[in-house]
Write a protein that binds this DNA or RNA. Structure first.
Lengths: 156, 156
DNA sequence: CACAATTTAATTGTGTGCAATTTAATGTGC
DNA sequence: GCACATTAAATTGCACACAATTAAATTGTG
């Protein structure tokens, strides 16, 4: 047996055992798998998530969107500008609190929702798991995500 | 009850129900959670994964590393150049097949392994799950990843 | 009410990811 | 043995992520 391989079976530094890599690699695969269907709408995967948040409720601030998606203004500001350029949303300063920027859907942005409904349906098959498995996995992941975010806060 | 919210309970377009978002968001949290500990080694999270692959076996081609991490040369080439600049690896053309580039560890790259052993141990707590939960989740995610990658290939 | 602390976005800079293309080397079919 | 396909990296261009900083508005406090 090869020495290096033997060492690694005992080692914690084994990619095969990395939960973090499983998450990382699956996330990359998700983005790639969605890409062809979202390209038909002219959206990237993160842009699609922002649109989903806006289809749930109009006139949200950048901060509110960021909290739901765990993204900061450094990511969202340029992304939202692209959605604005694409004619899907509008951005305007809140007249009551001018620190805030309110994001609203244009008619085109609203209209896209109907087409977007087909995306999760089509993608369901690609995941290759049952609805129950998906529900369970989602819950486990969200708990883990919250644990990770908490540990980041604690470290500050 | 608000109309939009009521519609969304029936809708598939509900962020709360998105397995893909749970994966995406957890992956972002993983990268952020690792960052402080990896910064002590001078590595980013993807750079750390490349180093893990190289600690498992020396003298791998860019392609071999890419297959293990599901990353292409567009991502790896600049990343590997940075690791080379940092003095952790060497890059040299295979003399037998000059299309290939072989990546090897420097003494410094080898030496970093000892420090890196502490990272998974420290991160284990941040995930907030048992070893068994982690093992099960990892297996489910890797299966799903393979399903997604397969569906991408089929679409071609 | 002055003024420091806080909050919200935007900006800057670095490092991924990935599609698409290019370049060079190797295989292959005839 | 030579055109043609295939393969491996590199390159180009675009869009995230995120740390760190900046700018402007609001809040809190004495």
């Amino acid at each position: 047996m090869e020495k290096t391989a033997a060492n690694n079976q005992e080692s914690l530094l084994n990619l095969e055992n990395f939960l973090c890599f499983a998450i990382y690699s699956t996330a990359n695969a998700v983005t790639r798998a969605y890409q062809p269907r979202l390209a038909a709408l002219g959206l990237t995967y993160p842009q699609y998530l922002v649109m989903v948040v806006l289809w749930e409720r109009e006139n949200q601030t950048v901060k509110a969107i960021g909290e739901k998606l765990s993204l900061d203004s450094g990511t969202l500001t340029p992304l939202l500008k692209r959605l604005e350029t694409a004619g899907l949303i509008t951005r305007r300063r809140d007249t009551v609190d001018e620190r805030q920027v309110l994001i609203a859907l244009t008619a085109e942005g609203q209209a896209m929702r109907a087409k977007a409904e087909a995306v999760p349906v089509a993608m369901g098959k690609a995941f290759g798991c049952t609805m129950d498995e998906a529900t369970g996995l989602r819950a486990e992941l969200m708990t883990m995500r919250d644990n990770l975010l908490e540990s980041i806060e604690e470290a500050k």
